[in-house]
């Protein structure tokens, strides 16, 4: 039995196969509409995240399965003091697979140690959010047609944004990737990402402050929100906030085939005048999130229709202890 704790739990090849399955689901949704008949997913959300929870639930419903779960710690036994380990032991009697969102880092991993069913980490504090990364990778591959030899711009809060750290760690495994990291000085990527991930893998990258400076070079622009409270003072925020707002004017500097992504929710960092631009792909990204979650659920449940893409060895090679 395999779980999904981090995007790096899967090899590049396994991810490729899973994305092939997601792509087939996109083309032939009817073929997969009953492959999980009789199966149930438990969405155990100890903190609210409507978007991620609904994406998992939609994925299971699209596969013909059913959904149980809770959407906040208050409505679960956690409020009575039940441990994560006990909760998953109980849920293992009810459901076939579980997706867990928890404010404490490592909680889904603890669940996986005691679970009788596959566990998916649906976000644990500032640590990991693997299905967001799988969504990002799937979107890039679906739109670009490949994952290698791309110049990827990551813009905004690169210090606290776990989606950014996770995406960088996943992308460095592909050849010819180059990063342009666009952020204010205060919100540059943490040292461990710069040293342990980028430099250690000899991945070329540059750090710039203004989005306009990077725009013409980018194949992919991944936007994130710059929150006012992250700045040390109001003056800096006012001076810089416009650097990180993407609008139609800045899009004029971008390549014709630049792909703009955003993990959402968006506040004001992408102006609505960018939405009609065919290069704005953040809502398609949400749709790909459903496809790849469908593929992941099928893979972890070892649904026969997934084996032609993943091979029999997928279940055999679990995470190394």
């Amino acid at each position: 039995m395999r779980h999904c704790m981090s995007p790096l739990d899967f090899t590049v090849e396994e991810l490729d196969h899973m994305m092939d399955l997601a792509s087939d689901i996109e083309k032939n949704p009817d073929r997969y509409s009953h492959v999980c008949d009789g199966k149930k997913i438990a969405t155990l959300f100890y903190e609210p995240s409507t978007r991620t929870r609904l994406s998992f639930e939609t994925a299971m419903l699209n596969l013909g399965g059913k959904v149980i779960g809770f959407s906040s710690a208050q409505s679960s036994s956690a409020a009575k003091g039940e441990s994560v380990a006990d909760t998953i032991r109980v849920i293992s009697c009810f459901a076939d697979i579980a997706a867990i969102r928890h404010p404490k880092e490592g909680a889904p991993y603890v669940a996986s140690l005691h679970s009788g069913i596959p566990v998916i980490n649906a976000g644990d504090g500032g640590h990991q959010h693997p299905t967001q990364t799988l969504t990002d990778l799937t979107t890039i591959r679906a739109i670009k047609g490949h994952m290698d030899h791309l110049t990827i711009g990551l813009c905004g809060d690169l210090k606290f944004g776990r989606t950014v750290h996770s995406l960088i760690s996943a992308l460095v495994r592909y050849p010819g990737i180059r990063f342009i990291l666009i952020s204010p000085e205060e919100l540059r990527i943490p040292d461990y990402v710069r040293e342990d991930v980028l430099k250690k893998n000899n991945v070329p990258f540059e750090e710039v402050i203004r989005l306009e400076d990077a725009m013409p070079e980018l194949d992919v622009l991944y936007m994130t929100r710059v929150q006012k409270e992250r700045f040390f003072n109001e003056e800096d925020y006012v001076r810089m906030k416009d650097f990180y707002i993407l609008d139609a004017e800045k899009m004029k500097l971008a390549k014709e085939d630049c792909t703009v992504l955003h993990p959402l929710p968006r506040v004001n960092e992408i102006s609505v005048d960018v939405d009609p631009d065919p290069r704005a792909c953040y809502f398609r990204q949400v749709q790909y999130g459903v496809y790849i979650r469908m593929a992941l659920i099928m893979a972890l449940l070892d649904i026969p229709e997934s084996r032609q893409f993943l091979g029999d060895e997928f279940q055999a090679c679990g995470k190394e202890e």
Partner: peptide
């Protein structure tokens, strides 16, 4: 923020 800070045992 680690789960070890709250989960017993």
């Amino acid at each position: 923020r680690c789960i070890t800070s709250i989960e017993q045992g």
